[in-house]
Design a protein around this nucleic acid. Structure first.
Lengths: 109, 109
DNA sequence: CCACAATATGAGAATATATGAATATTCATG
DNA sequence: CATGAATATTCATATATTCTCATATTGTGG
């Protein structure tokens, strides 16, 4: 089915942004307020708010309002598994690149 | 580190496209030629070639040339684990949405 | 060498995304 | 209720992606 791949792509698109990745990494420890996030990540307030909205709209984050604060958390902890697998793949890549570089160095002698 | 999140985002960006997802799903069975992919996925040749290039440039796919054919394969099988985890998360989402919908239906009575 | 098949690349229009600045909304408190 | 803090939204602009059409490249067989 082609719609499914469309949905999957949307999901990955939500993750395809440096700030959004950093947000998710911060949320590994649990719920965090927007304010906290802002000071930890040191980004423009509106930018943060918009990237949070992207993740919220894709149902990746849950928002809980308490007073004037809004606390965000990751809906499905399996997301962290996903990020971990991604990290592994990523590390393999880096090793590949290192191998490639050392081969180049050898070849140049 | 902020560069790492940049790299991760690039990685997810590579996956954030319906056709590229379909390509990867086709490659679960193993190496496939561009020609085969084209007929299986039923897309424009140049479009396919460009999306293959995206995955190749991100080191996600390997290309092997044999005669006039080029055979593509997934470099790291862990990528399929990643797609599987994504599918699980995705299914949970759908359940969430279903729950939400049924609640709305109940609430409307 | 020619013609053809398989694949890649480039240019350009259409669309989408990112981001900062300004503004709006919501809530708590004096 | 006026003010201020926390968050969201809107808007304009810059940049990036996608896709199609045209063209290039590379290998094969006659």
């Amino acid at each position: 089915m082609s719609e499914l791949s469309q949905f999957k792509a949307e999901f990955f698109k939500a993750l395809a942004h440096p700030l959004r990745i950093r947000i998710l990494d911060e949320l590994r420890k649990g719920e965090v307020s927007v304010n906290d996030l802002g000071s930890r990540l040191n980004v423009e307030q509106s930018n943060l708010s918009q990237q949070l909205a992207v993740l919220r709209n894709r149902n990746i984050l849950a928002a809980r309002k308490d007073g004037q604060n809004v606390y965000y958390s990751v809906r499905d902890p399996q997301l962290f598994d996903l990020l971990d697998v991604a990290r592994k793949i990523f590390n393999n890549h880096l090793i590949d690149v290192k191998d490639l570089l050392s081969q180049l160095v050898v070849a140049r002698r």
